[in-house]
Each structure stands twice: as structure tokens, then as C-alpha cells.
Design a protein around this nucleic acid. Sequence first.
DNA 1: CTTGCCCCTGACGTCAGTGTGAGGTTTTAG
DNA 2: CTAAAACCTCACACTGACGTCAGGGGCAAG
Lengths: 133, 133
Amino acid sequence: MMRIGELAGRTDVSVRALRYYEEQGLLTSERSPSGQRHYAESAVDRVRLVQQLYAAGLSSKVITELLPCVVEGDATPELLERLAAERDRIDGKVAELLDVRSRLDSVITGATTNLLTGRPCRNEAAPETAPGD
Amino acid sequence: MMRIGELAGRTDVSVRALRYYEEQGLLTSERSPSGQRHYAESAVDRVRLVQQLYAAGLSSKVITELLPCVVEGDATPELLERLAAERDRIDGKVAELLDVRSRLDSVITGATTNLLTGRPCRNEAAPETAPGD
DNA sequence: CTTGCCCCTGACGTCAGTGTGAGGTTTTAG
DNA sequence: CTAAAACCTCACACTGACGTCAGGGGCAAG
């Protein structure tokens, strides 16, 4: 049974954040008689899962609703729809990210080529007859 | 030369957001003598680009720094590093998203199977001898 | 000239996730 | 036993990307 500081250290999540997760119902703890939080090993995974869901853009409210069934591996048809919706949202996000990624990448490739071919940064001496603007 | 309302309509971005973008240096406008903003056609693309970068998790500050070179297709070596760093960050994010996605997906598949095989939601009558907890 | 719609500039509100400090208790190390 | 470190509960502060309201102008139509 670890205390909150250890859990924080292991998960790289601040103590404050852990308490916040509990407040939001995303994480539970047993309390010692004196009121200190104690966590089982499984809490480490739980926190990581929560972080992942956060990173995926789910709000704490949505996570609260979906977490039980993600953990239990069980769901009502209603929850299934929500899960599927989130999955689709994530798919969309991935596509968007890949799009930007390729855009950035082509800029990088282009600019690198410019640098390698000895052309310095154009914005230093560009005349006003820029064709693209 | 369209005004801000039209640009908002075309880009599906609120008028407020457009003014905010300008405030952040992400979008420029010419002003009529009376102070009203006027935009060229190119502003539509610009706004879309900004939206994409926002969606990719870049802050307005970072976008401000990178936008010129993304638009001009040119960059200093320093900026190139930043671009590459952002690209890598995006790659990481994509990986993370795919990870969560697969996790959700397996939950969905599993729960669907449960439903199809007639097993109702376990949380209704689960005894305390749950093996996974 | 007035009605109506779009525009302007502040400036405060919101929401999430967390930082931070006050003021107090508990646990641990020596 | 005592001091330090870790913990507790409020509770206010902050950032970002806007929403929203207040109070005031610009401009075409009737």
C-alpha cells in the first residue's frame, strides 16, 4: 500500500493531480484511520490509463462515464455507442494529425533542401513581387 | 474583400475566434477607414491552417513562431529544429492515440460479444470474488 | 431620418487541469 | 522526544481559447 507521494513519483503525475482525479471520481483510494490515502499497485495502471484518455482529448466527465466499462470490459449498449463515438473521434483526430504532420514534413524537407543548396532564407531580401501572396 | 462575418461563415470559425487570431498575430487584416476588417481570399486558407495547427496541439505562441516559415516554405536552421520537434511530438501523439484507440476498440469488441452471447451487464450481480480486482 | 444589420473595442466569464500557499496533522528518522 | 518530511483540507490563482455582454459606430434600404 503506497501513499500518494509514491504513486505520484511512479506515474509522473503530480500529487495535486492525483487528488484531483479522485475528486473527479477517476481514482479511488483507501484511507488510513488518520485520513491518508493508500493505493494498491493497480492504481499505477489506472493513473496511466486516465492519462492516456486525457491525452486522447476526453474530458474528465466523459472519462468518468466510460472508465468503469473500460476497466470492467463490460458495457451497456448505450455506453457502447459512446465508446464507439469516441473511437471514431480519435480516428478523425489521427487523420488530422497525420495531415498536419505531412504538411510540416514537406516544409521541413523543402527548407532543408533550400539550406543545402546554399540558398539563404528568402525573407531577407524578397522583393514585393512575391507571387504567392 | 470580405468582412469578418463572411470569413467566419466560410471557415466555420467564430468571429470572436478570428479577432483572437489577429490579436495573437496569426491572421492579419486590412482596415477600412472606419476600422472594419477586410480579408482577401487567402485568409480562408490561412484560417484553416491555423485551425489545423491548433488541432495538432500547438499553442498560439508556437504557431506564431512557426507560421511564417510554414507559409513561406522557408526557415532558419533553428526554426527547422523546432518544426522537426513539433513533427516528432505529433508522431508521439499519434502513437498514443492509436494505443488508446486499440484499447477502446478491444473493449468495444469484448462488450459487444458479451451482449451478443446474451450475458447481461456483469455489474448488476457481480459477486465479490471478482478475479481482476 | 430611422430601422436593422453588421461591425468595433473593451472587459469580464468559463472550463479544465493544475500550481500554490495557508494552516494543521501524521509519519518517519535520528 | 524532536525535527523534518510527507500528508491533509480548503481555497484562491492561472493559462488558453474562446463566449458573451455592454456600449457605441457605419452603412444600405425604405
